[in-house]
Computed example of a mutant assay.
Amino acid sequence: MNQELTEITVIGDDDTGLIARVTSMLFERDVNIEDLDQAVRQGLFRMTMRVDTTGMSCTEAELRDALDALCDDLGMDVQVRFPADREAKRIAVLATKESHCLAAMLEAFVDDDPEAEVAVVVANHDDLAPLAAAHDVPFYDIGDAGGVPDEEWLLDILAEYEVDLVALARYMRILSPNVVFRYESRIINVHPSLLPSFAGAEAYRQAIEKGVRIAGVTAHYVTTDLDQGPIIAQRVFDVPDDATPEELEERGQPLEAEALVEAVRLHLAGDLVVGRGRTHLREDSDAELGLPEEIAELNPDEPVDRPVAEVVEEE
């Protein structure tokens, strides 16, 4: 996202004339729309605009007030992010009880990175509250006694902290389409398998039952299809003979944390483009996807399929 542009997101029940009402109001205040993306899913409307406010004929406060009033009239929610609001990109981390991915995210984006921050931790149990407190990060337990999350509360928290990205740090609940649609292309999950293999629950156990020799982990964008979103980063490890799911989990957890942090860094740096269900690097990116070159070079490059006459001649 161009950091010199203001981002406006409007979400609510679909109705006729929504785009015209909002864009007309912006035009009247000399706000230039540079990019507009809109979609409707299951009756829910979402419009995201990136606009140039440098020549607008009102103040930032007046524009916020006008958008709030219009969207109240339309029964919509609106979020406005001016360039100055984004000095550091804001991450919400969702977790349950496992600490390893949350610990890695806090270390990477609270202690080490001045351009991004974990703004809030949200969980469906309170087990990890001390970990967030140790890093002075606000913590919310939105789960009931059985861990069922209050997603309306979750959406309120995400809006309050104006998050740029949601990272699922072993959050053991499936987000509803309502949440995923509102933050589409801005939610990253880490899953303990080499997707698309072994989606769903107990992935390490699935790997053992299928007899694989190499297992792994995957960081991917979240879509409404469980564990099917575009893949960003993966890591692999050997599966020993007679390994238990617990032993695979012990091998996989450090890689889960590493893959999640890598995927978040790539997203926040603007290195990723998603097309046809696959992630690509922007042309001007210096990042890498897939195996590091030194590992890829270990793979054999011969033999390859060639005309038989050529092979015989060389023999």
Rank of each mutant, 00 (worst) to 15 (best):
His191Ser: 10
Leu155His: 13
Val163Leu: 03
Pro149Glu: 02
Ala108Ile: 08
Ala104Cys: 05
Ala119Ile: 04
Ala145Asp: 14
Pro149Asp: 08
Met172Ala: 13
Asn189Val: 13
Leu194Met: 11
Phe198Arg: 09
Pro114Ile: 08
Leu165Lys: 01
Glu151Tyr: 15
Ile188Met: 08
Leu195Lys: 02
Asp150Thr: 12
Glu117His: 01
Tyr204His: 15
Pro114Trp: 08
Ala123Gly: 13
Phe181Asn: 12
Ala129Glu: 13
Phe198Leu: 01
Leu128Arg: 00
Phe181Ala: 10
Ser176Ala: 14
Arg186Gly: 07
Asp113Arg: 06
Ala133Arg: 12
Asp136Val: 06
Ile142Asp: 06
Val110Asn: 00
Val163Tyr: 05
Glu115Met: 00
Ala132Leu: 09
Tyr161His: 15
Glu151Arg: 07
Leu154Cys: 11
Ala103Ile: 01
Pro130Tyr: 05
Gly147Phe: 02
Tyr140Leu: 06
Val179Leu: 10
Ser197Thr: 00
Glu162Ala: 15
Val120Lys: 09
Pro130His: 10
Leu102Val: 03
Pro196Arg: 08
Ala133Gly: 10
Val166Asn: 07
Ala132Thr: 04
Val190His: 00
Ile174Arg: 03
Arg182Gln: 14
Val179Phe: 09
Met105Ala: 07
Ile187Thr: 02
Phe198Gly: 02
His135Thr: 00
Ala133Pro: 01
Ala129His: 01
Ser185Tyr: 07
Ala134His: 09
Leu131Trp: 04
Glu160Leu: 13
Ser185Thr: 15
Ile174Thr: 13
His191Val: 06
Ala199Met: 04
Phe139Leu: 11
Phe198Asp: 04
Gly200Tyr: 10
Asn178Trp: 04
Asn124His: 08
Pro177Arg: 08
Asp150Phe: 12
Leu102Ile: 00
Pro149His: 06
Pro196Trp: 11
Asp127Met: 11
